[in-house]
């Protein structure tokens, strides 16, 4: 059985930079030009100062594992388990966390505070930001 397709986010004017930035290797977050804070999930305004002067900003794509779980339940037919679901805190974007998968290593090798970097997985024009351990 082929592995199932990842659920596909429905693109709109606000979330498109995040979900398609990987085409250029960019992890885009919504950033405020007035106060410098990030708003994630993205909105058409800054959630810190309510400025509408927000735009996609590419962050480094590195970070640390904030918390995680090793998932053993196949939530869709053909889904290979186990795999790691993690929450990554991103370098350069204080207060922003991404739920993601940690890939390219055995699940037992994942731990709190591990340093990770983004790797994009493309599927029908969506670039899913997954993360792998650094070094």
């Amino acid at each position: 059985m082929n592995p199932p397709h990842r659920p596909r986010p429905r693109l709109d004017s606000v979330n498109t930079p995040f979900w398609t930035g990987g085409a250029e290797g960019k992890l885009n977050l919504c950033k405020c030009a007035d106060c410098g804070e990030f708003t994630h999930p993205p909105l058409p305004l800054c959630r810190h100062c309510q400025s509408e002067n927000v735009a996609p900003h590419a962050v480094a794509g590195t970070g640390e594992i904030d918390t995680y779980t090793i998932n053993h339940q196949p939530w869709a037919p053909g889904l290979e388990v186990p795999f790691v679901i993690a929450r990554v805190r991103l370098d350069g974007a204080p207060g922003v966390y991404l739920t993601t998968n940690i890939v390219n290593c055995p699940v037992e090798d994942v731990d709190f505070d591990d340093k990770v970097q983004v790797v994009f997985e493309e599927q029908d024009g969506i670039f899913y930001p997954l993360f792998e351990k650094v070094g």
Binding site: R6, F83, I85, T99, Y128
Partner: peptide
Amino acid sequence: SQWTSPFWAIS
């Protein structure tokens, strides 16, 4: 759910 389900964090 778009911020979790794509990574199979469905439940």
